[in-house]
C-alpha cells in the first residue's frame, strides 16, 4: 500500500512517521557489493579496524540484493556485464541507492576508449553518489557514504510514488544486444 509514498499531501502524522523512517534508513544502509574491479578491495578495507563502516550502522554487506539498500559499483562496467548490473539493481527492493566508486565507474576512466566498456555506471544505472579516485581511498568512500546518508535523511518520501517513476533501464544499443544474447546463449548450454 505504501502510506508514505502514495500520500497526496503531507500532514502531521505522515511527516512524523517519515522523519522516523528517514532516520532509520539513513542509519542502516546495507551494502550490495557488485565487486566489478579493484576498488572493491578498498571497500573491503573500509569494513576493517581503521575505518569501520559498522560504526554508522552500514557494516552489513549482504550477499543477496534482496536485503540491501545501497548498490556499490566499485569499478568499470563492461558491455557484457551491463545487463547483469541492471538486473541486480532492479531486483533490489525499494528504496535503493547507487554509489559509483572510482573513475572507471564515473566515466569509464582508463578504459574509456575501450571497445568493450561502458562510459560510466550512469549510462545504465541511476547513480546517487559519485566518489572519485583511482583507486578510491576508504576515507573518500566513507565521505561518499556520509553524503548519501545526509541525502537519505534529508529527502522527504511523502508522495514519492507520484514524483518518481519506476526506473526503466535505457535500451541497450543493438551492437551490445547481440553480444549479450551470445553470452547468455553459451551459458544456457551448460
Amino acid at each position: 500500500m505504501g502510506l508514505i509514498e502514495n500520500a497526496e499531501r503531507p500532514n502531521f502524522i505522515l511527516t512524523t512517521i517519515d522523519t522516523l523512517l528517514r532516520w532509520g534508513r539513513s542509519h542502516s544502509l546495507w551494502w550490495c557489493n557488485a565487486g566489478s574491479a579493484c576498488c572493491s578491495l578498498e571497500f573491503a578495507a573500509m569494513g576493517g579496524a581503521r575505518y569501520d563502516m559498522d560504526r554508522i550502522g552500514s557494516g552489513l554487506v549482504r550477499a543477496s540484493p534482496r536485503q540491501s539498500d545501497v548498490l556499490l559499483i566499485p569499478g568499470p562496467i563492461t558491455k557484457k556485464m551491463a545487463p547483469i548490473f541492471v538486473r541486480v539493481y532492479n531486483q533490489m527492493p525499494d528504496p535503493k541507492w547507487v554509489i559509483a566508486m572510482g573513475s572507471c565507474a564515473i566515466s569509464g576512466g582508463a578504459f574509456r576508449e575501450s571497445y568493450s566498456m561502458t562510459r560510466g555506471a550512469d549510462t545504465v544505472l541511476p547513480v546517487d553518489v559519485y566518489v572519485p579516485g583511482c583507486p578510491v581511498r576508504p576515507e573518500a568512500l566513507f565521505y561518499g557514504l556520509l553524503k548519501l546518508r545526509a541525502r537519505v535523511r534529508g529527502t522527504s518520501n511523502i508522495g514519492l510514488a507520484h514524483r518518481e517513476p519506476i526506473y526503466v533501464p535505457p535500451d541497450l544499443p543493438p551492437e551490445w544486444e547481440a553480444e549479450v544474447r551470445e553470452f547468455l546463449g553459451e551459458h544456457e548450454a551448460c
Binding site: M1, G2, L3, I4, E5, I17, L21, S64, P65, R66, P83, I84, F85, R87, V88, N90, Q91, P93, D94, P95, N157, L160, A161, I166, L184, H187, E188
Partner: peptide
Amino acid sequence: VKLLAPSRPYALKNATYECGHDPL
C-alpha cells in the same frame, strides 16, 4: 509492512534472483 513500505512490483524485480542472469 503493508502500511509503511513502498510497493512497486514489476516483472524484472519479481524475477528469481540468480546472480543477475536469467533464471535457468
